[in-house]
Design a protein around this nucleic acid. Structure first.
Lengths: 204, 204
DNA sequence: TCGTTTAGATACACGACTGTATCTAAATCA
DNA sequence: TGATTTAGATACAGTCGTGTATCTAAACGA
């Protein structure tokens, strides 16, 4: 319905066109899901025709992967820096909540067999797409470690990832923005007590 | 390919036929996912024809919902009773891991818009289908409370559900059976420490 | 045993999407 | 400015699934 940006009537080419195509594909993905995405709809949304798409991506799978990659390149997430681990966590969880559609997109692609055909699990895809060494939560954890709030050698990795795992789970289950109570109880009621437990309760 | 049970050549009717149809639908769901399920394939798998299906379920949505419901009715889960909370938890997580396909089915249905069209989140559907008051984990928690291992008024609900939330998350992310290490670290490294924390460390 | 129900086979019209071919005209570059 | 590239429009054949109609014979009930 609402066509993408650029209402000019000049003919687009190269990178400009490709961006518009991938943006349109991403929008279709978030709105219709992987199963509901068609070359037809993407072309129409980008105000062009199917051949233009087929010249670049031979099938749905490559198009979807390109669209996901393009989205993450275009809209990077930068980790917050509030001064405390708990504060950073709360903020990061809030950001994740805002961008929850992305999770749904990945998941629907996963369940549609897109990744499993390539023998990849969602976790692996996530690692491939997002975590090129620099994952957001590792940034805020490293800062907290530098401040002496947490010892990353003592607190198990499972615990370090816990807030994000729980957030991801919540997003998948509720399909909606998470509440502040959820974020608070995750940080203050689950994560921090565990950190204290592993840090020997000395910092409390 | 492999047709369902009952290789007789008599013509099925009533409940017997309906069971076969829903079984076939469930199998298709687990193998092809919601998006990949067709009346055609279900009919063939049940060794019958499409009209037989259409006479009962007008569209894919009702068929899928009926198949899910039927599956849970036919294959109930009974909570383990090992004598300790940690033992029960480990066992229940193991069972959940075995039956992980069900989670994928629900999720793919969710993301295909089946439930969201009805305005329901996965959590609500899960509650509707599974938890008619008697949820498995509440059973083992209640037993543990009776033994004095845990005080359900003191340990927050979020924490009580934590092992299952984490298991569900793990299943969705990895698409595979979880490892024993995962189960152990969930129970011994996360859940039990939190229980101790909320129980005031008095039971340690 | 006869009548009613209904399973199962087959056929058909229809729609949505795919993937390619063909043509035009706009953008770009030498 | 003229040649080359390529966007965008259109058309078409082919596939797959839907939903319904029609017919037959099997199962069942009185």
């Amino acid at each position: 319905m609402d066509l993408e940006t650029d209402a000019s009537n000049t003919r687009r080419r190269g990178a400009e066109l490709e961006d518009a195509l991938l943006d349109a594909a991403w929008s279709e993905l978030t709105e219709k899901g992987h199963a509901g995405l068609t070359f037809d709809a993407v072309a129409e949304r980008a105000r062009t025709s199917r051949p233009v798409l087929y010249r670049r991506w031979p099938d749905k799978e490559t198009l979807v992967l390109a669209a996901i990659r393009h989205h993450y390149d275009t809209e990077p997430i930068d980790p917050p820096d509030t001064g405390t681990l708990a504060g950073d966590l709360r903020e990061l969880l809030r950001i994740a909540s805002e961008r929850r559609v992305e999770m749904a997109v990945m998941l629907s692609a996963q369940l549609a067999g897109l990744f499993s055909e390539a023998g990849m699990s969602l976790a692996e895809v996530r690692g491939r797409l997002i975590g090129q060494g620099t994952v957001w939560n590792s940034v805020i954890l490293a800062r907290a470690a530098a401040r002496g709030e947490i010892d990353l050698d003592v607190v198990p990795e499972r615990v370090q990832n816990l807030p994000f795992d729980l957030m991801r789970h919540e997003l998948l289950m509720t399909n909606a923005k998470v509440s502040d109570e959820f974020i608070d109880s995750t940080v203050d009621g689950i994560f921090m007590p565990l950190v204290q437990h592993y840090m020997g309760r000395s910092s409390g």
